[in-house]
């Protein structure tokens, strides 16, 4: 009872709250980082250095009037934000934040579950989230959201092919689809997989930027040309759900990049046991994991503050003519090396 029901429920509770708090503070961090890049201060009024800004934002969004346009398709309009947020949250179930730890005399694993098709589960559940964006734009019965959702579907389908192809070559190296086993494989190989698959990592990260609709691939929500994007007609908490999902997806992409390529919860130099590196082992695994994930989240914000948006034809050309051929070439080379060695 305790092991099968209570502990998993507690883990889910902690994880969901942790993710949602992380998401709200990601918004603040984004505003701060972009402000610093542009030599501004960013939010400063609510609390010291603006650290209470997310709470003020959340209260504002919750008390705002919730409007459904008259000619909108009510059911689909209501369902769309839910379809976006649910996949974004349930993929966290298979992300390993750390190995097993002893807590109050029990051995507890720092992941909700470990299924033997974990990586495919993440890819496939994430692909469901696209529907929310497409349907939200369509159900609004308004032309700019519809244009945005057509862009979104074309973009997400194109980049999903590239990302999935890229992950295949990583799976060939790791020999498993389970997230926990992939991290263990890196321990056994004595090296983080980014050093064996650097091309795959770069392709995955570019694809991740596109799949989360982040700059420079944020065409579905290009404010200047679409008056906002697929969520133009949404207000209040339903509007907020789209953004919660976007930031949760950023965390997923960063956490998956950490797990697959940067050793997950492993410390740097995971198998070298010499005295000067001993202090690295004192830091618990989950702190390594969160620190690495944070680096990628920061890169997301850094990229947004630095790069201008792609034009639509450039976006499609990059996806189909650069990323997919590179992913296939990488897979072929990986296969040859794996067979020959």
């Amino acid at each position: 009872m305790l092991d099968t029901v209570v502990i998993p429920l507690l883990k889910i509770l902690i994880l969901l709250n942790g993710v949602l708090i992380a998401v709200t503070y990601m918004v603040l961090l984004e505003r701060k980082v972009i402000a610093w890049v542009q030599v501004r201060l960013g939010p400063m009024r609510v609390g010291p250095y603006g650290i209470l800004q997310p709470i003020a934002d959340a209260v504002k969004l919750m008390v705002k009037e919730d409007i459904t346009p008259t000619r909108a398709d009510k059911w689909v309009f209501t369902a769309a934000p839910i379809i976006v947020i649910v996949p974004a949250l349930i993929v966290f179930a298979v992300i390993p934040f750390g190995d097993q730890v002893d807590l109050f005399g029990r051995t507890v694993s720092l992941y909700v579950t470990d299924i033997n098709v974990g990586l495919l589960y993440i890819v496939s559940v994430a692909s469901i989230g696209v529907y929310g964006i497409i349907l939200g734009g369509w159900a609004s019965n308004s032309k700019y959201p519809l244009l945005a959702s057509l862009r979104a579907s074309a973009q997400l389908i194109s980049y999903e092919v590239a990302v999935t192809m890229t992950l295949v070559s990583l799976i060939v190296v790791a020999g498993s689809l389970s997230m926990v086993q992939i991290v263990r494989a890196q321990q056994d190989a004595h090296v983080w997989f980014v050093f064996l698959q650097p091309v795959a990592f770069v392709l995955y990260f570019i694809g991740g930027l596109a799949e989360t609709n982040r700059a420079p691939f944020d065409l579905p929500e290009a404010e200047q040309e679409l008056t906002g994007g697929f969520h133009t007609e949404y207000s209040g908490m339903r509007f907020a759900l789209f953004f919660l999902a976007e930031y949760a997806n950023m965390i997923v992409v960063s956490a998956v990049a950490t797990t697959l390529f940067w050793g997950g919860w492993l410390r740097p130099f995971p198998s070298i046991q010499v005295a000067p590196l001993a202090w690295l082992g004192l830091v618990p695994g989950w702190i390594w994991f969160l620190a690495k994930t944070f680096v990628f989240l920061y890169v997301f914000l850094w990229v947004r503050a630095t790069l201008p948006r792609y034009r639509y034809d450039q976006l499609m050309r990059l996806g189909w003519k650069v990323l997919i051929p590179l992913a296939i070439a990488n897979l072929i080379v990986t296969g040859f090396v794996k067979v020959l060695l």
């Binding site: 495919l120 692909s127 579907s153 389908i157």
Partner: peptide, 18 residues
């Protein structure tokens, strides 16, 4: 099951919708 979600629910039907 996962392939069913990835290929049919997540890929092909998105094209239908498109």
């Amino acid at each position: 099951a996962v392939i069913q979600v990835l290929v049919y629910a997540g890929g092909i039907v998105v094209l239908y919708l498109f």
